[in-house]
Simulated assay, not measured.
Amino acid sequence: MIKDCFVKNNQDETKMRKSDLKNSTSLKQNTDSQKKNCSIVSSTTSLKVDQDIQESGLFIKAMVNGTQCNLLLDTGVTLTILSDQLYAELDKTGKIGLSPVTQRIVGADGAPLTVQGKGLFCIRLGSQEFTTQAVIANIKADGIIGLDFLQTNQCLVDVCKTKMYVHGVEHELELQGNIGCFRVSLCENISIPPRSEMVCPGRVLDLPKLPQIPLLIEPYAKFQDSGRALVARFLVNSSGKVAVRLMNISSQSQTIFKNTVIGLTSPVREIILPEKEGIVNNVMPGENKETLPEHLNDLFDRTKTDLSEEQATKVKSILIKFSQIFSKSKDDFGRTSLIKHRINTEGEKPTKQPPRRLPHHAAEFVDQEVKNMIDKGIVEPSSSP
């Protein structure tokens, strides 16, 4: 769960403040073993989130007029398009005549493309050759195989197996580029008890294969606004399924059904550790660079005397994981704002009693204890009658 972090991309830097992440606060209680794939990130950790400006998607290796290139498959594009850079390379080997294009062509962002013209090109996929018309425009990819080529040549794209069949001939596809931001849904029905936290299995939608890099899980705004549960921001290892931390802060159980979209995920390319001493939580998933807090050293030393080395290592790991629940001193008291204490008087009127006189020898001790409790914030001065 990220308390306060910097999320960086190639275009800007945005700081997530603690006030923006208040809904990510979780109860300090134990959950199940699925937390082993989760990493807490400290307040000064910087995350480089993959938001590459290059095109991402399924590509196929091809030869266009004898020049090797990677072509992007896109069923949302009606025309096959080649980049102006690829055309410049082709033009070196022989002049390729272009005819003007009268229609206006826009990109996925709605901005118009700069079009040089259209012409006939020889596209070779493996042992198959096709002569097709393509438009030359300023696109980032080498080229885009559009719906015209896919329909004309009876192409069948298998996204799960990353393969394409052209007139029945199989061709390998390759997932390139960085995945953007994808939805995360639950794998099963869950019921969260009142004021409790759970780690639940989720899966990333719209993605054929998870990258073998850490993923940043964030809340899905629509689910968060429903008020059923809070979704923590935190890092997970990508291993088929992803763990999602949910918290129910209400006084009633909350049931969330399978396939409910609860979060969004983006890949994290790098975690930049701050050059400070004493920071122990900012590590990559799978690493353990944490140290035992000083106030638990005595407890650990007394505990490990009758334990094997393996058992002592496990105990140390547990103490580090739950170090926040141990008081650092006799004056270290825990507090919560989730529950408020009420004294039910059942309609009875307040009573008034005269103060009891203290023995003279105890007055100094009582004054000192009251002062200590005021200094620690346990009590506060009262002006009631």
Rank of each mutant, 00 (worst) to 15 (best):
N189C: 10
E346L: 08
K330W: 15
K18Y: 11
D332L: 00
D12K: 12
E380W: 11
L186E: 01
Q311N: 04
L150I: 09
S329W: 05
S251M: 15
D91A: 08
N10S: 06
D375N: 09
K352Q: 14
I53F: 13
N9Y: 10
S383V: 09
V106Y: 11
S46K: 14
I179G: 15
L292A: 02
E89W: 07
A362K: 10
M16H: 01
K371W: 11
G97R: 07
V242Q: 02
R335F: 13
M247Y: 14
M164T: 01
K35A: 15
Q311P: 02
S238I: 03
E309M: 15
V261A: 12
V49L: 01
G76V: 10
M373P: 04
S127D: 13
M164E: 01
R203W: 03
D32R: 08
G263V: 06
Q151K: 07
K22T: 05
A108Q: 02
V244A: 00
S251K: 15
I271N: 04
A362D: 15
V379S: 04
F300R: 01
E369P: 08
G278T: 00
S24I: 01
K222W: 03
I378T: 05
V115T: 05
T25G: 11
I262S: 06
Q128E: 13
F182P: 15
L86E: 01
V169G: 04
R228C: 07
G168F: 04
G146F: 00
P211F: 02
G347Q: 02
S19W: 08
I190E: 01
V366K: 06
D158K: 13
I271A: 00
L27C: 11
P274S: 02
E294Q: 09
L230G: 12
M247W: 13
T162H: 15
V204R: 07
A232G: 05
L175S: 09
S323P: 09
H167G: 13
N30M: 15
E294D: 12
T303M: 15
E13H: 07
K118W: 01
K140T: 15
E172S: 14
L156A: 04
F223W: 13
S43H: 12
D148T: 00
K258C: 10
G202I: 06
M16T: 08
L58N: 09
V379L: 12
Q29E: 08
L358R: 03
D32G: 08
V77G: 00
Q254P: 05
K276Y: 12
G143V: 00
T67F: 10
Q353N: 14
I249Y: 14
K3W: 10
M164R: 09
V157E: 05
L207N: 03
E129P: 09
S383L: 09
I190S: 10
Q154M: 08
A232E: 10
T152G: 13
D50P: 14
Q151S: 04
P208L: 00
V283E: 12
M1H: 14
R228Q: 11
A108M: 11
Q176D: 07
P293Y: 13
C5L: 12
K276M: 09
H167C: 07
T336F: 03
R356S: 11
